[in-house]
Design a protein around this nucleic acid. Structure first.
Lengths: 194, 194
DNA sequence: CGTCTATTTGAATGTACTCAAAAGCGGTGG
DNA sequence: CCACCGCTTTTGAGTACATTCAAATAGACG
């Protein structure tokens, strides 16, 4: 079944009866994205949460100089959306793009709201999901203020070991908050030393 | 009634029947903090969410050089906690301190969990609260990556106009992510120009 | 293969930091 | 109520981490 990864993800936090599973599944849509395909563009209203089952997405913003800044990666078993836009239903600031051929499961904002009412457990599920996301984001703010680029890179390597070999350096540099040039020097420095 | 600010805050997102209000209020405790008093210390397990009714708190971390970094301010009508520690019930990294004489309302983790079960609406309330917090934190990450210190300062002034005159510059500098010395220069630069 | 993009390397520059010291301000006690 | 003490803010000079711009090299995809 194509929804197994998602159902398993959910079962870590709440238990669904089989009829509840059916209702939930009825709300889901599958979608495939080609490498470099845009899932959500800056300025659009975000109408879906996406759960990645294969491949990888990235969410990024573009600043006034045209430089990109990666807010988040979404490898398999992760959710991604422009949370600001999804909540407010106003035009968003994120672009979400496939870094490779990717498969996702979609849950629309409207259906998510229905879920909250029909199966209140989902309110709990998404609360917990967002709590964890909040904690991770707060930690990242602290790290950005407290640590050097090299320390942030080491933390990234520990926290996302699987992403290190798959992602282009450019993208990791952008997530960590340095230029690709500096990231390259940093890495060759780390290799020579420890 | 001392809980009016909090009840009013909640009523923006969910409606409580009067008996539900009573249950909720029965879980709350009031507490007063003197200026510079520590509400939660680094390394402690965070057992309470705090809602500020008067004064102001700040949550900060201390890095390996002994420098402080402010993660959040909590003026009246705001919640504050060490979310990581509150969720995991492990020792936290935040210190939460009163910047002035402050009054807060406490809700314990245990009672919050009870609320979720007895009055499921609260699951929704806190989900929404945390969603908004997540969006604000994500925006801050983006701003830290995209903007200069001066631009971040201007945004801070717009977003928290009331805090500008009450907070010591040192604290704002720490929130924005610059040294007090640089912050001072930056400000005098801004005053001379526009 | 050829083209396009990613990565590396070099040199000059800038933004923000460090250390040091002076000036300002606020709270507290005599 | 004033004087003092401690903390915050300002100012100065030198420095560092990271950026910019440019060019060469390497890699990946069609």
């Amino acid at each position: 079944m194509p929804f197994n990864l998602l159902l398993n993800n959910i079962s870590k936090f709440i238990h669904l009866e089989s009829n509840e599973q059916e209702i939930f599944i009825s709300y889901l849509k599958q979608k495939k994205l080609k490498r470099k395909q845009i899932f959500l563009d800056e300025g659009e209203v975000c109408k879906y949460s996406a759960f990645v089952t294969e491949g990888c997405l990235r969410g990024y913003t573009v600043d006034k100089n045209g430089d990109e800044h990666v807010l988040s990666f979404a490898p398999p078993d992760w959710w991604i959306a422009d949370m600001y836009s999804l909540i407010s239903q106003k035009p968003g600031i994120l672009t979400i793009e496939a870094l490779e051929d990717t498969e996702i499961i979609l849950l629309s904002k409207a259906d998510q709201e229905k879920l909250y009412i029909e199966i209140p457990k989902f309110e709990r599920f998404f609360r917990i999901l967002i709590e964890n996301s909040l904690v991770a984001n707060q930690q990242r703010i602290i790290d950005n203020m407290s640590l050097t680029a090299e320390e942030r890179y080491k933390i990234f390597c520990k926290r996302y070991p699987t992403l290190i070999d798959t992602l282009p350096q450019k993208q990791i540099a952008s997530y960590i908050g340095v230029t690709p040039e500096f990231f390259s020097r940093m890495r060759s420095g780390l290799l020579r030393r420890g």
